[in-house]
Write a protein that binds this DNA or RNA. Structure first.
Length: 104
DNA sequence: TCTTTGACCCCTT
DNA sequence: CAAGGGGCCAAAG
């Protein structure tokens, strides 16, 4: 992990390392970078999303495993559909972190 | 230029 | 055990 760069770079790198069919929580990312309370910035990092298509924002969910509301890729249901296609059981915009929660 | 909000989480009382 | 408040960095108004 390159902590030499800013937190954003770390967040992007971690999200990129998330394999297909797996989901990550903001808390895990924030904790991975070194500051558990940086979840807000994690969301901002994905908001700017400098590398669309490379950074799987749809695999990033909140602490409760619930999909974010403002992800706005082009449709809220879009994220649930993508996750389902990858093999993640999406129930009511929620996923099972016990099964699909990816750990670094 | 300064203030407030924002895809959130953790810790204390 | 449960509820509330505080904190982090950055961008937009």
């Amino acid at each position: 992990m390159d902590f030499s760069k800013n937190y954003f770079e770390n967040v992007y790198d971690l999200v990129k390392k998330v394999p297909k069919g797996r989901v990550v929580t903001y808390g895990e990312i924030a904790r991975a970078v070194g500051n558990p309370r940086m979840g807000r910035q994690v969301g901002w990092a994905l908001h700017v999303n400098p590398e669309p298509g490379v950074i799987p924002c749809h695999r990033v969910v909140n602490r409760f495993g619930e999909l974010s509301s403002a992800f706005a890729f082009g449709g809220v249901n879009r994220q649930a559909e993508l996750l389902s296609e990858e093999g993640v059981e999406v129930i009511d915009n929620k996923v099972d972190l016990d099964k699909y929660g990816y750990k670094f």
